[in-house]
């Protein structure tokens, strides 16, 4: 079996191109791009970060309110009454605060998971 050494070929290739090919293709490409405007940088990377921050802040705010309400209204003798206490506390919130909490729950991307 004969030996093979990459140095015998180096970067030689059997492929060829027509004379003046690269200057002609550059001109063709310049003509193409003249009719093809650059697209704006995607805005989604910034807005995604904003959305994530808003979600985290909203979730933290809701958690703080719920924990606060739970601590204040926690019945001393019955864990089963916890949710009732939260419901009662919720009922005592103003309609604006209730609407805000419900909205946060609805918008929370992680709630359904």
């Amino acid at each position: 079996m004969e030996q093979f050494d990459f140095n015998d070929v180096g970067r030689r290739m059997p492929y060829q191109v027509p004379d003046g090919f690269f200057s002609s293709i550059e001109e063709k490409i310049m003509q193409h791009v003249a009719d093809s405007p650059m697209e704006e940088a995607p805005a989604h990377s910034i807005s995604r970060v904003k959305i994530l921050w808003r979600t985290l802040i909203s979730t933290a705010a809701v958690a703080a309110i719920v924990i606060g309400l739970w601590v204040v209204f926690q019945p001393k003798d019955s864990a089963a009454a916890d949710f009732a206490a939260v419901e009662k506390a919720f009922d005592q919130l103003s309609p604006e605060d209730q609407a805000f909490l419900l909205q946060v729950y609805e918008d929370d991307a992680f709630m359904d998971e």
Binding site: I29, H32, V33, S36, P37, M38, E39, E40, A41
Partner: peptide, 9 residues
């Protein structure tokens, strides 16, 4: 190259 130009940003 058309894509490189279009999506350069």
């Amino acid at each position: 190259f058309v894509r490189v130009f279009r999506h350069f940003r």
